[in-house]
Design a protein around this nucleic acid. Structure first.
Lengths: 145, 145
DNA sequence: GTTTCTGCAAAAGCTTTGCAGTATC
DNA sequence: GATACTGCAAAGCTTTTGCAGAAAC
């Protein structure tokens, strides 16, 4: 799972600098989690991420993956979206929103520009500081409920 | 927690008929869960619902509340929305969407008409059958991250 | 009377935490 | 060298499940 794409390399570097700038340390576990999220299409659960990493770095523990994900979510580097007990994580460095399948949990990304205006209006209406939209339904494979 | 409001009474009756029409049975537990959801503003977790019910009906078990909620969600009577391991439930019989606070999990409702057009367009774009929108951010009390 | 539903108890599954040792800066 | 981070093991929480008895129809 080496980072070959120039774009990914750059995104990773940017995040590394940001993490360090906050006084945090850049570790093997953090790098592995982020490389996994950059590599994989869509969003993954903590356990899926751990599985991918464990193939390369068997010593990395589940708890470490969780701790890294929580830390990164806290810093705004990754998104965390819930799906009935199976939280999914994805990169947050490029503005987008989500479509979640209620059946299989699969996540599709929606470019931000499609919805930003609406979110601004609704945020005003409900008095929330809204920054993310999740649409829920069924993906193409899962069909009707 | 008696159902006094005429509106609630009617909503409950409608749901009862719908449940029976599907060959399911109308039970004390089901009635209690739905009355709780009708009474409470916003959306509650399964445990919160169980707590409210237990004050009146101590014999109702947590597992029963979960089973009832799953069954009702399956029938489309209630909404189920995830928030990092703490799923919340709310009435689905009146069309609306949700604003979830990323800090405390509080849920505000957004009338459907504000977003329906957008959802239709996005559903087409991503190939999903979308029926619900969740906006995530911070509520008034929780302020900035 | 039949079938769904419930209570109880136990298990499962994801996530969190305490602590001693390790890696990062 | 100081301190953030990790691995391990154990605990915590919500949710799920098996089964015998109760309730709904």
């Amino acid at each position: 799972v080496d980072v070959t794409k120039v774009d990914d390399r750059g995104r990773l570097d940017t995040i590394r600098d940001r993490v360090r700038a906050r006084g945090r340390r850049w570790t093997v576990a953090k790098g592995a989690v982020l490389e996994t999220l950059l590599d994989q299409p869509g969003h993954l659960s903590a356990l899926q991420i751990h599985e991918v990493i464990a193939a390369r770095l068997p010593q990395i523990d589940r708890s470490t993956v969780h701790r890294v994900l929580l830390a990164l979510a806290d810093e705004g580097v990754v998104h965390m979206l819930g799906h009935h007990g199976q939280t999914r994580y994805g990169m947050a460095d490029q503005p987008h929103h989500h479509a979640v399948c209620a059946a299989c949990g699969q996540v599709a990304e929606i470019p931000a520009h499609l919805v930003d205006l609406l979110v601004t209006q609704i945020a005003l209406a409900v008095g929330y500081d809204l920054d993310r939209v999740t649409l829920t339904g069924r993906c193409g494979q899962c069909g009707q409920p």
